[in-house]
Amino acid sequence: MKKGKQLLLGLLLFILPLVLIACSQTSQKTYTNGRDEVIIAYKGDTVETVTLKSIRTYEELGVTSKKEAQRVMDNIVALFKEYDLEFQLKTEVTDKDTAYILTIDADEMNSSEFKKMYLLPGVDDFTSLKEVEETLKLGGYEEKK
């Protein structure tokens, strides 16, 4: 009987760390509307970060030169800097299009500062995976497999 308890305890001590590691890992889901991508990093039903990747041609931006396109990207950066938020924003301008990648923490997205910008109308709790996914689907986004 004592050996059985020791074996069970040993097995639990071996399995428990594996379960804890598996539960603590961040997963990702990607949604697209055909031109933009939203990448959600989450644990369980809790969103940790949201990344938006967007590419626009010069024509879509209403510009004709790389210099004008760069000015548009600079304005996007300036817009985000007006708000008291922590985020990562990378921009790139090529000879034919522009791209930006915005990554922001879900807790920041729940702040009143971010809600002033309101990039995803209809989301009250940006830490809820279910709520963010439902809003994206309503906005025409589909999960990318």
Rank of each mutant, 00 (worst) to 15 (best):
V77M: 12
L7Y: 10
G62D: 08
I76S: 08
G140H: 04
K96G: 02
T94Y: 05
D125Q: 10
E142G: 15
F14C: 13
T135N: 12
A106L: 07
L85V: 04
L52E: 05
V72M: 09
V93R: 03
I15P: 01
T51N: 06
G4V: 14
Y58R: 10
R71G: 11
T57G: 06
K67S: 15
T32D: 01
K3A: 13
L20D: 04
E60W: 04
L8Y: 06
E48N: 14
K144A: 09
L13K: 05
G140V: 04
E131P: 04
L102G: 02
I101G: 00
A69H: 04
T94R: 07
F126R: 04
V50W: 00
I21K: 07
L52M: 12
E131G: 02
V132C: 09
T30C: 02
T94S: 15
S128D: 09
E133R: 05
I40V: 11
E86K: 15
L12Y: 01
K2E: 10
E86H: 13
S54F: 02
K66I: 08
L8M: 12
K2Y: 04
I40S: 00
I55E: 14
A106D: 00
A78T: 12
E48P: 00
L85A: 06
L13V: 13
A99T: 10
I104Y: 03
E37M: 09
A41F: 03
L129T: 01
K137N: 07
Y118F: 14
T98G: 05
C23F: 15
L16P: 00
C23H: 11
G34Y: 08
S111A: 11
T30E: 07
V19S: 10
L102P: 02
G44L: 10
K116A: 11
K90L: 08
I101N: 08
G44P: 02
D125R: 10
L119S: 11
E142K: 15
L18K: 04
D74E: 13
T64C: 00
I21T: 11
K5F: 12
S112H: 08
D125C: 11
E37G: 00
Y58P: 06
F114G: 00
K130Y: 08
L136M: 10
G139A: 15
F87N: 01
K67Y: 09
G44V: 08
E134I: 01
D97M: 14
V38K: 10
V93C: 06
P17V: 09
Q25V: 13
G4W: 12
A99M: 15
T46G: 01
V63T: 08
A22N: 13
D74N: 14
G10S: 09
I39D: 02
Q88K: 15
T64G: 09
T91G: 04
K116M: 12
T49Q: 05
V63K: 06
L13I: 13
L20G: 13
V77L: 14
L129I: 07
L85S: 07
K43R: 15
V50A: 03
K43H: 08
A22V: 11
I104Q: 01
I15Y: 08
F87K: 01
E108K: 04
V93Q: 01
K2Q: 09
V47S: 03
K96Q: 13
L11H: 04
A99L: 14
G10L: 07
